[in-house]
Design a protein around this nucleic acid. Structure first.
Lengths: 215, 215, 215, 215
DNA sequence: TATGAATGAGCTTTCATTCAT
DNA sequence: CATGAATGAAAGCTCATTCAT
């Protein structure tokens, strides 16, 4: 009887744990290869479960992808809620949002990959999920309030469209991180080094700050 | 000298036409489904040629994708050369670049799709192409000159990094157009209507102009 | 004597009920899809029980099918016993048998489906059941007596083979009811309406009556 | 160089021959196991071709089954056309039809099996085939003429419904041949011996003749 | 007695690619 | 230069059945 005797216990019959394992494995596989390129068998192997179990817990590859998207969106929404932009000074709040967005994309490359894949498929899976549509982001509303407060105080220009601003913030970060492979190849530069990343974040903060600040 | 002596030239012309047909068909198919999702058979059908011809002219699916990428980059480089930013006033030149970028992305959704697909695959195909690496874009250098001229004249702030600026211009346009499916679904808005597109372009011009202009 | 002493009886009753539920569900599923097309999972769902229970009460899909066949044959044998052809006038007895056969097939389409499925599998399951082989139908003997009585009385032709007659009666009904889908499609007629069914029964009665009646 | 050197030629690149080989193999496999039980791989092996070829020539298992049904119906329709019942005396014509039906069923057990399978699936495949629906059998019309002629001559009873009669002829043969496995098991008799078959055909001829003949 | 979790084998179908002409 | 026929490998998915509780 060695102390390792308990090891097999890892493979429990715990439904929730297995489900989560499959979900995490799927997230990685879909992020690595996109929806079409992902292999159900590879997901099963990553999760250490039988292929059939994937069809037992989820209904198929499509539904599994929807579940992954839902989890991913739920994660980012939860993180957004903890930002509490209302509690910060307007300009600081915008910069906080930028930094958060940048760091979240950096820490969750799978999110970018999933979105790329999903956009290639006309957002068919996303549209299929009522849960995601209901998971309405409060960010636009919050950002609108921040902009209004900034304008009231005379710190920001009035009339800024919060949705356009949000898309710009996201785009400035997203494009750099998501396309760094082709950009790096074309420009012949290493874009993912610590210095390069810091430089980019500073640039984005600069661009956006100059855009919102009152003249 | 047989009567067929003239044939080779004709054949060559036909060959070229066929090659082009395959290339165009491949571009459409790859844009619609990404590299992994594209079907060689579908490309043959779109081009109206036999599947084997694809292997005759190109060597396989990978090489065909490289050829498509090369063509796509060649197209955008050619368009860029006609911009002649040097001939414009500095601020106008930047705005011209923005409008060009936006319109090119809008007119060539396959370019966005190909880039997305390529980034998902770590730019493996792009890196394989010596031709693309040699097709060095003069844009960064030109943009650097424009910025320098603008700074000299006191119309622009000095010290702006042309690469960061270029990536920002591209990102502000790219993200909106490439991700409009998911963004539209999440925001519940139609982002591709004429009005929405005009609004977005105006926003981008505004953001970038405020960034480069001297205070 | 614990308070649970009475439980076994209850359990037994429940057990029987569950067994019956499985059997009925299996009958329906096998009738709908044949042996090969039937799904054990679907049977469990129809019966509202856990899949494993099917393996507990029966041993597997094959054995379950045998049990269904046994039940089905037991039902028809029981119904046959209640006919009491001996009590009727010979000609009336034959007509009674025809009407009974027709109505039984009509009321129990699963019987036809099970037989079709079984014949497709060379009656392997049926042959495996000692119970069915022992459930010898008294019908042929009874019919032989009826024919003999009819002949004695001069109402029927002598020398009629009861087995051939029985197969003919069954076939005239079976083929119409079992194959009405293809027949209906080929003839472009609705064969299962009340009128059509009545017409067919009358026809069968006519055919058989003319066959047995003394000239 | 042995004389066998030419053998490989058997596997030609003749599309038509290959298509036919697949069709024949499919017919056998579907007849042996029904639609659901048939294995595409087994069909490919029987035909000696690659599995993918089946999808190349036909579109899938369903479409292949439809093609088999079409071929089977085309065969029986062709045989029916050669009967030329109009050329025979009325009573002889009916007996000719009976013998033909019996022999065709006997020689083509796959026809019975395919019909059984198809009826189990509500004739879904058959209904899908426009070709089969258009392959209207002339038999009913021909039989109607035969009955009319027989009635005119006073050899047959008037008022006999040709469709009912046809279904009866088919049913008397079909049921015996299609269900001989279960019937044989239940009656404990060998029903497919030469004697048994001859006896059955004689019985059917007897039954039908007595039905149509004028009293 | 009853259950949900888990499996291996095998199904139909798809794909990029090559062969024979 | 061009073609239709043919393939091996592997994909998503299903099935009857067993395991652990």
């Amino acid at each position: 009887m060695t102390p390792l005797a308990a090891a097999p216990e890892i493979r429990t019959r715990d439904a929730d744990r297995t489900r989560q394992a499959v979900l995490r494995a799927a997230m990685a596989e879909f992020a690595d290869h996109g929806f079409g390129g992902a292999r159900v068998e590879a997901i099963a192997e990553r999760a250490g479960v039988n292929k059939k179990l994937i069809y037992y817990y989820f209904d198929g590859k499509d539904e599994l992808f929807v579940a992954v998207l839902e989890q991913t969106y739920a994660d980012i929404r939860a993180a957004e809620r903890e930002l509490q932009l209302e509690a910060s000074e307007p300009l600081a709040a915008v910069q906080k949002l930028i930094t958060f967005t940048w760091n979240h994309y950096l820490a969750h490359p799978e999110f970018l990959a999933l979105l790329n894949s999903e956009n290639m498929h006309r957002a068919d899976h996303l549209r299929r999920s009522r849960r995601i549509r209901d998971m309405n982001s409060p960010l636009i509303d919050t950002l609108a309030q921040v902009l209004a407060r900034g304008a009231e105080r005379g710190e920001m220009r009035p009339g800024i469209d919060p949705m356009q601003l949000y898309i710009s913030i996201a785009g400035l970060a997203y494009f750099y991180l998501s396309n760094h492979h082709t950009l790096g190849a074309v420009f012949g530069r290493e874009l993912m080094s610590g210095d390069s990343l810091a430089e980019r974040l500073a640039h984005i903060l600069d661009v956006v700050t100059r855009y919102v600040r009152a003249a």
